[in-house]
Amino acid sequence: MADFQTSTHRANWIFTTQELDDKYNAARQRAIQTLEKYGATLMEVDVDGTLSYPEPQINSKDNADKHSRPKPLTIEEERYMRVFYENKLQEVCNNFHFPHKIQATALIYFKRFYLQWSVMQHHPKNIMLTCIYAACKIEENHVSAEELGKGISQDHQLILNNEMIVYQSLEFDLIVYAPYRSIDGFVNDMEEFCPVKDDQLQVLKAIHETARMEVDKIMLTDAPLLFPPGQLALAALRSSNEVHKVLDFERYLRSILSRQSSAHTVSELIESLNSIDSWVRGYKFPSEKDLKHINRKLKSCWGLSSHDESKKREKKSKHKSKKSLNETQNVPSHTDL
């Protein structure tokens, strides 16, 4: 049976916190190297996934060693950027009334992409849109690039331009397991676990709803890169159960483990759930002020000073669709999109 146990998700995309930190650091270091070599970090992506490094910045060479050399984002600032766009991603998916599954798939694509790259190298807005587009394709919920672009007033060519690089960065591991289905499964299971009275069905419905909302929160943290979807679901259900107080959760966990003859002990499982909870508690959204600051830094890293912009625009005017890429590459803010 092809399931999570045999999936690429489990084999290739569940990390330890240390591995995750290493990946973020490595991606940032690569961006910094590019910055030092070329004076800017933004990669030029072709529709077939071919990449080009930024054009060496004449300005930055002229003013070499002066304070005008762009400063790279810190690890924390990179995280804030991702957090910001992950929220945007949820917003866009909600506006399109996409199913939870698509949102979750797109989010996981986005997270995986930025394990390989820094936000300094690929504009997170474009990547976010492409991840949504790709998730729709993979989950068989068809939306044309044009439709998607129109819905958010973006040039759909941006979406298509990044498609190959996204798939490549995902190493074509396209099936992801979101915790939403696990929640459905566990709630069904709970119905059998606790003696069902008429009023209890209502309570289980409530626990289900709250757990879904909890998972939405979990999906915005790094937890999906650290824990399997079943554990994310259980963490959400546990939090939800704390609100609704339906069952003895630890006893429920024991019953699951005994039935699955799992290698985990209850204490290990509880430790994982605690850790997922702490990711949710530690979640920080950047302030307006933080964002402004980061965006200023990012813009200079991307090499998008007004001088360069006119130059780039000139170069690309032959490619109509790409021209708008520059026009939309402005500072992201809450009003963006």
Binding site: A26, R30, Y38, M43, E44, G49, T50, L51, S52, Y53, E55, P56, Q116, W117, I165, Q168, S169, E171, F172
Partner: peptide, 20 residues
């Protein structure tokens, strides 16, 4: 414009990202 050829990305930095 520096094109990232295979030597620069696909091989040297392999497996930092993507496919062979």
């Amino acid at each position: 414009m520096a094109v990232a050829g295979p030597g620069q990305l696909n091989v040297e930095e392999y497996p930092s990202w993507g496919s062979r």
